[in-house]
Write a protein that binds this DNA or RNA. Structure first.
Lengths: 180, 180
DNA sequence: CGTGAGTAGTTGCGCTGTCAACTACTTGAT
DNA sequence: ATCAAGTAGTTGACAGCGCAACTACTCACG
């Protein structure tokens, strides 16, 4: 509710321009986003997989670890900023550990917790993977945007992202900006 | 595709400002796209799930069927324009059939093939789901974009999408940098 | 007509991720 | 000190999807 509806008027004024409805363009943008996302991730994941045997999710964890102080992060920090639940993180970390790319340490100050720590090999693999991956992002994505579009995409998508908060927050109760 | 490669010069001129690189903004846009996509699909899927027990993929199949002449489509037509392989489609159709939303018919002219056909119930469910879903797309996505941004997003993402073609094509065998 | 290559859809298997229940620990109130 | 409530990570059961092998069919060519 509480959406458009001056549409009728505009159509009446110029019946030829029917695709001009304000949300038609937005719906098209949404579908383009779905397609672009699926093809981009498909392609980038395939590249990463072939060259280093990494999935995008695994790459992302390595990325976050390599950017963290001491190359270490608590599991729940990985969970919070990631597109994954805690059990997903737990299993993904286990897998990467099996490949020797990282190891875990129990946290001394809070004995419930654990750190994931990048190994030397993990750092090396990440560095190589990152070179390839960033090139891929530019090749398949950035290359097709002019500077204005890139900036516009960025601010628009960040706004959309931020409006949805973290994967939680119920319907309603948005207005109050409750964190949870 | 304007922009491009003045980077070297700029870095040379001012080595301190390294984050000013033209692709930094593109990388940020890429990350925003990942986040926005995951939160949007998460939210929209949750809404669809709660109200009609549908996943986004299932919704999309219903959508394509309801837009098709005779509310019917060959399996491979679903596969081609969809973000799914043929086995995925096969199982998804089976599932929806189990819920009575569609049925299948063997194709008389090509006895290998089969049609997925929307049932009356399927059409009803889709209509209701679509009302909710489109509202959700506007609420969580469209609502946050002004007209210029929406148009820009659309053309930019369609360009990116089209540049990647359908999920196939192997542009050379890349560099050989296998490791792990 | 016969045969081999190609296409449509199905299915066994394995991978990855979720959910919910569980253990182990911390923390704040009493 | 005690205990209830909350948090961190693990685990079992399971859903959904892709891959590759399979069946069933079509089609072009000889």
């Amino acid at each position: 509710m509480a959406s458009r509806r001056a549409t009728g008027l505009r159509d009446l004024r110029n019946p030829l321009v029917k695709t001009d409805r304000p949300d038609a363009c937005r719906t098209a943008a949404w579908m383009a986003l779905l397609d672009a996302h699926s093809r981009l991730t498909g392609r980038l994941e395939a590249e990463l997989q072939r060259s280093h045997g990494l999935s995008l999710a695994e790459y992302e964890v390595l990325y976050r670890l390599s950017a963290a102080p001491g190359h270490r992060l608590r599991f729940n920090q990985l969970t919070s900023h990631a597109r994954m639940t805690k059990s997903g993180v737990s299993r993904l970390v286990e897998r990467l550990q099996g490949h020797g790319l990282l190891c875990t340490e129990r946290c001394p100050s809070d004995r419930r917790g654990a750190f994931a720590v990048l190994t030397t090999e993990g750092r090396t693999v990440f560095r190589r993977a990152a070179a390839l991956h960033l090139r891929g992002v530019q090749d398949h994505f950035g290359r097709h945007l002019d500077d204005t579009e890139a900036a516009s995409l960025r601010v628009a998508l960040e706004r959309v992202r931020d409006a949805l908060g973290s994967p939680a927050s119920d319907p309603v109760a948005d207005a109050a900006g409750v964190s949870r």
